[in-house]
Computed example of a mutant assay.
Amino acid sequence: MPSDFNIINALNYLAQLPALLLWLIFLMENIMITILVLFFGKIIHQKYSEAPFVPYHYVAREWKICAWTNILNTVVTYAGFKLWEHGYVIIGIDISLIIITDFLLLFIAMDFLMFIFHYCIHQTFLYKIVHQLHHQAINPKPIDLFILHPLETISFGALWLILLTLFHFNIYSVVIYLIINVVFGLTGHLGIEPLPVKVRSLPLIKYLGTSSFHHNHHLKEEYNFGFYTSIWDRLFGTFKS
């Protein structure tokens, strides 16, 4: 189909660009994601925050860490592209039900891998060295999605790249997953809960990682280690509503 051909053409075109330009493109992509997270975080905060409304405030130190996270995310993006270019990452381009199944596999697999990684960090010396930086935010705000120790940023990126090299996924599933990943990252660091209790109690929604779910993790660090769902916390006894 033409759309499939265009995707492959775009990837092949990028492969022909000078390395420096490719780095710049991927850096701008990550900066744009950050801008969108901060922008929509502000909009949601203004709309759903309880009175009195107190706007988000970001300090210079947070901007510096956020900048480094963007650079490291660019490294991960570049590495993933090179793995594809050299045949280590294989992507499908069919438009079929495989898009849904591949997305669900990515969603559940990454949720499980990040749960295990997140839990292990909290139980070892790595917490003080690596993860404590993120937990300085008791009441998270959107920029805290990017307030990570460099080792943590690279580790999460490595999990993602390892999964892509071990299994073949559809390109559309990958794109959908990456968008959903950012949405959940923003949701978990709003510092407020935009969803009413009735919605959060719905059969499927109650198992998702809502803003309250991750906010509770920042308040009580021994609970809620999941990212997209509360499934693993419920199974392993670390869930707190």
Rank of each mutant, 00 (worst) to 15 (best):
M1W: 01
I8T: 12
N9T: 08
L11I: 12
Y13A: 02
Y13C: 01
L17V: 04
P18Q: 01
A19G: 04
L20Y: 05
L20W: 05
L24N: 07
I25A: 04
I25C: 13
F26C: 10
M28K: 02
I31V: 09
I31M: 07
M32K: 15
M32E: 11
M32G: 11
I35H: 07
V37F: 05
F40W: 08
G41S: 15
I44M: 13
I44Y: 08
Q46I: 14
Y48G: 10
S49F: 02
S49C: 08
F53S: 06
Y56E: 06
A60E: 11
E62D: 11
W63N: 12
I65F: 03
W68R: 10
W68K: 10
N73Q: 15
F81I: 04
F81N: 11
W84F: 12
H86D: 05
G87C: 12
I90V: 04
I90C: 05
I91A: 07
D94R: 14
L97M: 11
I98R: 10
T101M: 07
F103L: 03
L106V: 04
D111R: 00
L113Y: 05
L113Q: 08
M114I: 11
M114D: 06
F115N: 06
I116E: 01
F117L: 06
I121G: 07
H122M: 06
H122Y: 02
T124S: 13
F125G: 11
L126F: 14
K128A: 08
I129K: 05
H131D: 00
Q132F: 01
H134M: 07
H135Q: 08
Q136K: 12
N139K: 11
F146W: 15
L148W: 08
E152V: 06
G157F: 14
W160D: 13
W160Q: 07
I162C: 10
H168N: 15
F169E: 13
F169K: 05
I171V: 11
Y172K: 12
V183A: 15
V183G: 13
F184L: 14
L190F: 01
L190R: 03
E193P: 10
V197C: 05
V197A: 09
R200M: 03
S201L: 09
L202M: 02
L202C: 05
L202H: 03
K206P: 02
Y207H: 01
S211K: 09
S212I: 06
F213N: 10
N224L: 09
G226M: 00
T229S: 03
S230N: 02
W232R: 13
G237Q: 06
T238S: 13
F239R: 01
K240I: 07
K240A: 13
